[in-house]
């Protein structure tokens, strides 16, 4: 088994052309980033609105759970039959699945902001927008970005599944390998997909660390210390 995997990775044919690793990785990354951007543009404003005003929270959580329960493969095959185009079907499916984690993260992030802090901001005369952008969003950032990280993991996984309806990307190795029982190719696809997910998650973790204000990180660390003490 390990021999087959090494053979596959060391075969220079697998690193070139339309079916080569660089192309497949970039394709996969492209689907993930495109759907992430679309999902973020849709989900963050809705999450901010609901979290800031407190209106529609129950509806948001409920519909988020329903979408979470949607089977990826069912959604993608359904959309493919509807649009008869694998790119459109897959991107729509990916966007739909990436929205709940981002929405939930944004909403939960704003909800988690200490009420007394929001109260103080209001009491000192901040207007709604000032409160949202100067206070609530910076403090909510860790949880919002946590939602984005979840969405990215989900997208990498789902993009592999979406290869079933003819999408490119790393899922091709998994499915094409399965079709011809080439286990080296299957395992290589699995390893590459997992690696991509892990690398993206690490990158986002670094971004998260860079974006979260120092005071918020200190407060988090303090809270953790109190719990473990």
């Amino acid at each position: 088994m390990i021999g087959e995997i090494i053979d596959w990775f060391t075969n220079s044919a697998n690193w070139q052309g339309e079916d080569g690793v660089p192309t497949r990785v970039l394709q996969h990354l492209g689907y993930v980033l495109l759907s992430l951007v679309i999902a973020t543009v849709i989900a963050v404003p809705i999450g901010l609105y609901v979290g800031h005003t407190g209106r529609g929270g129950v509806l948001l959580v409920g519909s988020g759970n329903v979408i979470r329960a949607l089977p990826t493969l069912g959604l993608v095959t359904f959309l493919f039959l509807l649009f008869t185009d694998s790119d459109i079907a897959a991107i729509i499916g990916l966007v739909v699945l990436a929205i709940p984690p981002i929405l939930a993260g944004t909403y939960a992030g704003l909800q988690a902001v200490d009420r007394s802090v929001v109260d103080a901001a209001e009491g000192m005369g901040m207007r709604g927008g000032q409160r949202l952008w100067q206070i609530e969003v910076p403090i909510a950032l860790p949880i919002v970005l946590g939602g984005v990280r979840n969405a990215v993991l989900q997208l990498v996984a789902t993009a592999a599944v979406a290869a079933y309806v003819g999408l490119g990307g790393l899922g091709r190795y998994l499915l094409d390998g399965l079709a011809i029982l080439d286990y080296g190719e299957v395992a290589a696809g699995a390893i590459l997909t997992a690696l991509l997910a892990i690398v993206l998650d690490l990158v986002l973790a670094t971004v998260q660390r860079a974006l979260v204000p120092r005071g918020v990180r200190l407060a988090e660390a303090g809270a953790k210390k109190e719990v473990s003490a």
Partner: peptide, 18 residues
């Protein structure tokens, strides 16, 4: 546990047999 959760489902399904 974070690492396990990061591995995409289809990838996990196909590597488990080996």
């Amino acid at each position: 546990s974070n690492l396990v959760y990061t591995v995409p489902s289809l990838a996990l399904f196909v590597v488990i047999p080996s």
